[in-house]
Simulated scan of single mutants.
Amino acid sequence: MFLLRSSFWLTVAFLVIRPEADMGATASALSSEAMARGSQFVAEQIEAIECDTITCIGGKALASAAIKTNPAAVDPMHNLAASGSVPLPRPRPDRAG
């Protein structure tokens, strides 16, 4: 009986603890899809504006160019290494022996 009960609870614990999917990849995919759909919607709204002045046409062109750039292509700040990084652990001083 002890072995049966132990195997049951170990199975339940494994099913609860076991990761089903990679949450980081799923969140990244969802956020990139949301950004793509949002920028597509904004681009459609910008294209729907009817312009008759050069200022309006120029503003429309600038807004369209800004939307079409891919911010994900630029390396995010948290992935860049610090310029003056210190090696960890720090080396022992010569006087310490």
Rank of each mutant, 00 (worst) to 15 (best):
1 M>C: 06
3 L>T: 08
3 L>V: 04
4 L>G: 07
4 L>T: 13
6 S>R: 15
7 S>Y: 12
7 S>G: 00
7 S>Q: 13
8 F>N: 06
11 T>W: 09
15 L>V: 14
18 R>I: 03
18 R>P: 00
19 P>Y: 08
19 P>F: 03
20 E>P: 01
22 D>K: 13
28 S>C: 04
30 L>T: 05
31 S>P: 00
31 S>L: 10
34 A>E: 12
39 S>M: 05
42 V>F: 05
43 A>S: 15
45 Q>T: 06
46 I>S: 00
47 E>P: 00
51 C>K: 09
52 D>L: 11
52 D>K: 13
53 T>F: 01
53 T>N: 05
55 T>E: 15
55 T>G: 04
56 C>G: 03
56 C>W: 00
56 C>P: 07
57 I>S: 14
58 G>H: 01
59 G>E: 12
64 S>T: 07
68 K>H: 06
72 A>K: 05
73 A>N: 08
74 V>T: 08
74 V>I: 12
74 V>P: 00
75 D>P: 04
75 D>I: 15
78 H>Q: 10
79 N>I: 10
79 N>R: 14
80 L>M: 11
83 S>Y: 02
83 S>I: 08
84 G>P: 02
85 S>R: 12
85 S>H: 03
86 V>I: 14
87 P>E: 12
91 P>G: 06
93 P>T: 11
93 P>L: 13
93 P>K: 09
94 D>F: 15
